[in-house]
Design a binder for these strands. Structure first.
Length: 847
RNA sequence: GCCCAAGUGGCGGAAUGGUAGACGCAGGGGAUUCAAAAUCCCCCGCCUUCACGGGCGUGUGGGUUCGAGUCCCACCUUGGGCACCA
């Protein structure tokens, strides 16, 4: 009975849970519902340790809620569309569908032994036609409500492979396979009107009390609401059909420090000038030889081109400013044109230094004097104060007041208007790729854009495609693309763009409430299960996925697919840290990095002796091959050990560097708990005093562990469980108390180590399954202590301590403290300068 | 570059503004054993001291406070995100 065969025992209890249907979620109005969801995985082929961490945390919550009387929904699915499946097809042949479903089968097989409390009957993959067909129905609803539209937008274009590249596929401005310089190219694409919801998505962040503050801050900054001034600079002479340049600025108070007006290379004026000036055309085209990612553009060297044009300063018609084209100005934000004030903007200053443009000394107190120490300033045109004070006869010191006053001034004078801008752009969902959800519209030569009929859904991806040539196979598919128009029946062409995979993950949480329904959702199920009570996932999704989901929930509500209460679909969010690992890289033949799996590298070398460059820890990613596979540990020690270990070592919100050392120790501890349970079953002796001491420790542990689980302090809860196991081991309590203690220990451990806990529970005569046994309650009578140890500080440093009755009067504590030997020594006969007593906590004597 | 975090012993980490280092790992010593494994017990921040004790100590530099790992300011380093990786 002392031998513990993890494999057999775990399989036995998993079967018992399955037979009892413990995890099957049913609508049950007699119990409070609880929906716990972990961000679903991409089926890359193997589960990695980060998945285990994510799902184990969710499982602890789900099992805890089950034990505290909730009707729990804890589902699992697969975020199954995306580029890696196509890349696999290109590299190794085969079909993305086979690769994906094969991976799902493998990963499900790796996950099931973990003993997660998942309702597998609700499982789906986003590449199931039953799922994406409903997504197409949602798209048609959105189209009808005008939440989707088409416009031109730029993509990364690989001129050699003749294909669109994702940002990830652009490395140092070159295509990852061809190595060719990437170009920006405009295509007509589909967009969700998320920007219509900017204000609402921003406002509602305030109500998300159970979201991490950092996520709300990041989202607010992403939406980027700003109040600024929009106005026109009149050109000194019209050019290319333009007679003014409209700019937007959040710092109109710096207008008297303007050096030049800058426009984006994609600005209509810049484009118009291209046709008449070859140098400008060359400059713009150079600017476009860069990826579309904002990070790349911001990091790139700042470059400009003097157009030779000039504009008049709005406050001084005799003052001409030159017009430059600058590569750091984004066409997507504001009007695509700015005025530069180098005295108050580092980037403008760098630019002016580089091109020898004037820097005007504006304010008396420069905002960053050190940064401009070497600058030769040009004297200001007004008094060297905020110009609004000069023009409007005001006396304003603070920045925001000055900004507001300038906007009012410009509006009254009639040359500008206050404008609220958002950084948030509409969500482009078109992807020129095969392995995604087809967009259900048809282009008809006579009817134009025609939505598919809902009865024709799902529009299935064709299976007969090949990946032997670059580009989207749907574009060249012989029969799939050519269809009759759903409206007039004449020959027409199906839209060949598919949807961004973020669309798939923006409503899966709603689909889990009715995964087999013939409509996207079912009102009764959505009403009962929504919202997700606890959502758990990586901090890397803090902005895009979570913002898109918030938008989708609103759009679905507008279309009648979700109740109003679900427009904020995630009541509580927990962002777990990532499991990171070093990246191992060598240089390939073409000078590009080649990545290697951790298991291929020993002592910094490959098997053939090639030295490997070690890049410091980073997020585990399949493309960087730094993914650690937990399956060996599961096979060796069982699921309970892996679950216990992954939770025990680190605070859940923090990133952890993966290390395999310690799994062995976790296993030893679990076996120690098992032996103690066996011993408790056969215990003898005991005394009332010993029994009480053990029960006191037990109730304290119940309290601490319960609080720990509820507050995501899993590592701290486990530390308490370790400590209690230590107490139990040393205890001389009698059989009854020790059995109760061991059984309770097992029960408190059950969210983390459910199989071991069931085995102990059963052995020590617990009723039924521990998984659904009511969670223990801490008896307050056992929690109170009657004495307390107070540290005594002298000048804030701990020098002594004393043990006193818990409710001892302040005066008595002061007296005892002053009588303390160390205090007497420090005072040397003098009276203390100050005596601070914090009852129950500390005494501080200031001498 | 911009936005958001994190930084504590050899390691993972604990700590409502109140005894820094709980708990675990690694390490050292001991018990048990013919021996080993397993198990059990004890020690374990750094410097100094035979010892008692003393000094230093939570990325760096300042500040607030009787008291700062915790609050404020500046900086450094690392990580996440930057709209087509998921």
């Amino acid at each position: 009975m002392t031998d513990y065969q993890a494999g057999e025992i775990e399989a036995k209890w998993q079967a018992a849970w399955h037979v009892a249907e413990l995890f099957k979620a049913e609508r049950d109005t007699a119990r409070p519902k609880y929906y716990v969801l972990e961000m679903f995985p991409y089926p890359s082929g193997r589960i990695h340790i980060g998945h285990v961490r994510n799902y184990t945390m969710g499982d602890v919550i789900a099992r805890f809620k089950l034990a505290t009387g909730h009707s729990v929904l804890h589902p699992m699915g697969w975020d199954a569309f995306g580029m890696p499946a196509e890349n696999a097809a290109i590299e190794r042949g085969g079909h993305p569908k086979d690769w994906t479903y094969g991976n799902i089968a493998d990963m499900r097989g790796q996950m099931k032994p973990l003993g997660l409390s998942i309702d597998w009957s609700r499982e789906f993959a986003t590449c199931d036609p039953e799922y994406y067909g409903q997504q197409q129905a949602l798209f048609l609803d959105f189209l009808e409500k005008e939440l989707v539209y088409r416009k031109n937008a730029v993509v990364n274009w690989d001129p050699v492979d003749m294909t669109v590249l994702a940002n990830e596929q652009v490395i140092d401005g070159k295509g990852w396979r061809s190595g060719a310089d990437v170009e920006r190219r405009e295509l007509t694409q589909w967009f969700f009107k998320i920007s219509d919801f900017s204000e609402e998505l921003l406002d509602a962040l305030d109500g998300l009390d159970n979201w991490p503050e950092k996520v709300r801050t990041m989202q607010a900054n992403w939406i980027g609401k700003s109040r600024g001034l929009q106005f026109g600079f009149e050109m000194t002479a019209p050019a290319a059909g333009f007679d003014r340049i409209e700019v937007y600025t959040t710092r109109p108070d710096t207008l008297m420090g303007a050096s030049f007006v800058g426009i984006s290379p994609d600005h209509p004026l810049a484009k118009a000038l291209e046709t008449e000036n070859a140098d400008i055309a060359a400059f713009n085209s150079e600017c476009r030889k860069m990826g579309t990612s904002e990070a790349d553009m911001e990091r790139a060297e700042k470059k400009g081109f003097d157009t030779g044009l000039s504009v008049k300063h709005p406050l001084d018609p005799s003052w001409d400013l030159p017009v430059w084209i600058a590569n750091f100005i984004l066409m997507d934000y504001g009007t695509g044109a700015i005025f530069a004030c180098p005295a108050h903007d580092q980037r403008d200053l760098d630019f002016c230094r580089k091109y020898d443009l004037p820097v005007i000394d504006t304010f008396e107190a420069l905002e960053n004097p050190a940064a401009v120490a070497d600058v030769a300033f040009v004297p200001p045109k007004t008094e060297k104060v905020r110009w609004i004070n000069h023009f409007a006869d005001l006396d304003i010191a603070t920045g925001q007041e000055a900004i507001d006053a300038t906007i009012t001034f410009a509006e009254q004078a009639g040359w500008g208007k206050g404008v609220t801008n958002y950084r948030l752009r509409d969500w482009g969902l078109s992807r020129q790729r095969y392995w995604g959800c087809p967009i259900p519209v048809v282009h008809c030569p006579s009817c134009g854009l025609v939505p598919e009929r809902k009865e024709n859904l799902p529009i299935r991806l064709p299976d007969d495609v090949t990946f032997d040539q670059p580009g989207n196979p749907l574009d060249r598919h012989p029969t799939w693309r050519d269809v009759p128009c759903p409206k007039c029946g004449q020959p027409a062409k199906r839209e060949t763009d598919t949807m961004d995979t973020f669309v798939d993950s923006s409503w899966y949480f709603a689909r889990f409430t009715a995964p087999r329904a013939e409509t996207p959702t079912v009102p009764e199920d959505a009403a009962y299960w929504m919202n997700v009570d606890q959502y758990i996932g990586g901090i890397e999704h803090a902005i895009l996925h979570l913002l898109y989901s918030r938008f989708f929930a609103r759009a679905m509500h507008i279309c009648g697919d979700l109740p109003e209460k679900a427009i904020e679909p995630f009541d509580a969010l927990f962002t777990q840290g990532m499991v990171t690992h070093e990246i191992y890289q060598t240089l390939g033949a073409n000078g590009r990095p080649v990545y290697h799996l951790p298991e291929e590298v020993t002592d910094g070398k490959l098997a053939d002796g090639t030295p490997v460059e070690i890049i410091p820890s980073a997020k585990m990613s399949k493309s960087k091959k730094n993914v650690v596979d937990p399956i060996n540990i599961i096979d060796r020690y069982g699921a309970d050990t892996v679950r216990w270990f992954i939770l025990s070592d680190s605070p859940p919100e923090r990133d952890v560097e993966w290390t395999a050392a310690g799994a062995e120790a976790a296993h030893k501890h679990l076996m120690r708990v098992w032996r103690m349970a066996v011993e408790a079953a056969n215990a003898e002796g005991g005394s009332a005093e010993e029994d009480t001491a053990l029960l006191r420790a037990m109730h304290k542990t119940i309290h601490d562990v319960t609080v720990g689980i509820e507050s995501f302090g899993f590592n701290a809860a486990i530390a308490r469980l370790y400590a209690f196991a230590g107490v139990l081991q040393k205890s001389q309590a009698g059989a009854e108390a020790r059995q109760l203690a061991a059984r309770t220990l097992a029960q408190l451990m059950s969210p983390m180590t459910p199989h071991l806990s069931e085995e102990i529970w059963q052995m020590l005569g617990g009723a039924g399954l521990v998984t659904i046994a009511p969670w223990p309650k801490a008896d307050p009578a056992f929690l109170v202590e009657d004495t307390v140890t107070l540290p005594i500080q002298i000048n804030g440093k701990r020098r002594s301590e004393m043990t006193v009755a818990k409710d001892l009067a302040r005066e008595a504590i002061e007296e005892l403290a002053l009588a303390d030997e160390a205090v007497q020594r420090a005072l040397a006969g003098a009276a203390p300068k100050k005596l601070i007593v914090v009852p129950g906590r500390i005494v501080n004597v200031v001498v």
